[in-house]
Design a protein around this nucleic acid. Structure first.
Length: 273
DNA sequence: AATCGTCACAACCGCCTTTCG
DNA sequence: CCGAAAGGCGGTTGTGACGAT
């Protein structure tokens, strides 16, 4: 097979992404949309592998991604789905509209897997393609422990601060206004940055998503998030300007207690410019 | 205060699948 | 239909933070 390596390592940077790199990637995707990852780094001025760019965007920068704070219900669903499907993280992730397979996989390896001896299901032996499908029952009822450690995200280094801020912002906006609508100008550019924000209709047939989709709409877009972003290195990003403008324009809605009418198409968030 | 071990997360690697000429 | 290219997926590793000693 003559497959060329997708990442030739000549002079390409590795390791943690800097805010500047994030900004370049965001700006590029903003203008050109997703795809064409192979040549994206060159065009975007990034010394990164295309795969790395795609990974960074898909799992961290893409608006609407929910990160951290797995609820007990989510944990339980992950365990159940993993018992049914095995390590098919992408399939499992489809049950979590705003989670990425990567996030779920990591959560599994760092938290949930450890509980296996204490639970009655051993997904490592009961994957979807498992021949036996044997369910191993632990001796006696074992309580599923809570995540032993407090949410570590706040103690993490600044390296992911950029992504955290952006996703925090995107998540809040999504919660507040519901599925975001892409401005016509962006739609005409075949850019659909918010497609992942919308809860797919198919999720309605899933019991779990009852809890997930319990709308937090009506929550205030808290000032702290905007202040954080405005005070951050992302204050120069055009998307932030757009959001602040939007916030100002919707001040009465933001600060009021009236829930946004999600049926209306009148609200357009120009997250990207 | 310094060192060591553990944990959690981000990122990379390589293989597989899909798409397209 | 075939092969190449690109995208997607899952496994694994690297690294920094934090707690224990």
């Amino acid at each position: 097979m003559g497959r060329t390596p997708s990442c030739t390592s000549d002079g390409l940077k590795k390791g943690a992404w800097t805010p500047e790199e994030d900004q370049k990637l965001i700006s590029y995707v903003q203008k050109h949309g997703e795809g064409g990852w192979r040549f994206l780094p060159q065009k975007a001025g990034l010394q990164r592998c295309g795969k790395s760019c795609r990974f960074r965007w898909t799992n961290y920068l893409k608006p609407g991604i929910k990160r951290g704070d797995f609820t007990p219900e989510e944990d339980e669903t992950v365990v159940k789905l993993h018992a049914q499907l095995g390590n098919r993280w992408a399939t499992i992730a489809k049950h979590f509209p705003r989670r990425t397979d990567h996030e779920i996989k990591n959560h599994w390896h760092t938290h949930l897997k450890k509980r296996l001896p204490k639970t009655r299901i051993d997904p490592t032996t009961t994957g979807g393609s498992s021949s036996s499908g044997t369910t191993v029952t632990a001796t006696g009822p074992k309580k599923i422990t809570e995540c032993a450690k407090p949410q570590p995200s706040e103690t993490k280094t600044q390296r992911s601060a950029s992504a955290l801020l952006l996703n925090k912002l995107a998540t809040r906006v999504t919660q507040f206004v519901g599925p975001l609508r892409v401005p016509q100008t962006l739609q005409s550019m075949s850019f659909q940055p918010f497609s992942s924000c919308t809860v797919p209709p198919s999720s309605s047939d899933n019991n779990f998503t009852d809890s997930l989709s319990t709308p937090e709409t009506g929550k205030s877009l808290d000032e702290g998030v905007l202040n954080d972003i405005m005070a951050s290195e992302f204050s120069s990003l055009s998307c932030v300007d757009g959001l602040i403008n939007w916030k100002n324009n919707n001040e009465s809605v933001v600060t009021g207690e009236t829930q946004v009418d999600n049926q209306s198409d009148s609200t357009t968030v120009n997250y990207y410019e």
